[in-house]
Amino acid sequence: MGVLTDYFRAADAATVVRALEPTDGGLPPLGADGSFDGVAAKGVDPDVVLGQLLAAVLGEPWHVDLVTETAVWPTTTPPGPSGLADEDDPWATGPWVTELGGATRDALAGVPDDRIPEVVARWAEAEEWDGADPADLLPLAEELIALARRARAAGEQLYCWICL
């Protein structure tokens, strides 16, 4: 089973929640028809794989809390200290949406074009890519960086929609 991840930009969490409510958290509409501006990035989870990209951008080792996130969806209270949710609880089944910290957006947005190939070469070394060719990852990295630039220019935040 793969993890579906889409990154998108929005003005704030309330805007995201309003868009997700009619579909009970279903995929946020990505596209040029007035929907969210985003990037489909299957398997690029925020904590590890996007975190590896951020580490490459920053020139530092990856660590688990490099990408900060705030839960936006589901809007119900998360499970208690046990971390266990009922099997029909949206916290157990998803989808989930998190708002990425502004530092992530700004670091991605700040990558100069001439540094992108170098950053992607380092990103491709991540264990999660299993020896991927940097040339294959370059278009995705360019899309994520461009999305971050558009978000920063518009004063918006980056979000990640995740579904199993």
Rank of each mutant, 00 (worst) to 15 (best):
A148W: 07
V57Y: 09
V119A: 14
P61G: 14
T76H: 04
P95V: 12
F8H: 07
R18M: 03
V72H: 04
T104V: 07
E127N: 13
H63K: 10
D12P: 09
V120A: 12
R122L: 13
T23W: 12
E99V: 04
A124Q: 14
F8R: 04
V48A: 03
L58Q: 12
L137V: 10
A41T: 02
P78R: 06
P74M: 13
E60M: 00
W73K: 02
V67K: 05
T77M: 15
D12T: 07
I116K: 13
D113Y: 01
D65M: 14
S35Q: 05
P81Q: 00
D65A: 15
L66T: 10
V67A: 13
A153Y: 10
T104Y: 09
D45G: 11
V49A: 08
A40W: 08
V3M: 11
T5G: 11
E99Y: 04
P139A: 01
S35W: 08
V3Y: 00
R9S: 00
A19I: 06
G94C: 00
T76D: 15
T75A: 02
A32V: 09
G110T: 11
I145G: 11
V119S: 15
V3D: 03
G131D: 14
A56E: 01
G25N: 02
V67F: 11
E69P: 06
R105W: 01
T75I: 05
D86V: 00
D106S: 13
R115V: 10
A103F: 02
V119Q: 14
A92F: 01
Y159H: 07
L100N: 03
A107E: 08
G25F: 05
V67I: 15
D12I: 11
L144Q: 00
D47L: 15
E60R: 00
P90V: 06
A146P: 00
D106G: 08
C160F: 02
Y7P: 02
A154K: 06
E143F: 08
T15L: 09
D47E: 15
T68A: 06
P79S: 06
A154Y: 01
R105I: 02
G155R: 08
D45W: 04
D24R: 10
L108Q: 09
V3W: 08
A121T: 12
E125Y: 06
S82P: 01
A126P: 09
A85P: 01
C163H: 03
D37S: 13
G110A: 14
L138P: 01
W73V: 08
G59E: 04
P139T: 05
V49H: 07
L30H: 02
A107N: 01
Y7V: 04
G31E: 07
P74G: 01
F8G: 01
Y159M: 06
P29K: 03
V57I: 06
G51E: 08
G102P: 10
W91A: 06
E69A: 13
A92W: 07
L100V: 03
R18S: 11
D6G: 05
D136H: 11
I145H: 06
S35T: 00
A135M: 04
G101R: 00
L137M: 14
L20E: 01
V17C: 00
T23E: 08
A154D: 13
A71D: 13
A55I: 05
G131S: 15
A55R: 11
R105F: 12
I145S: 03
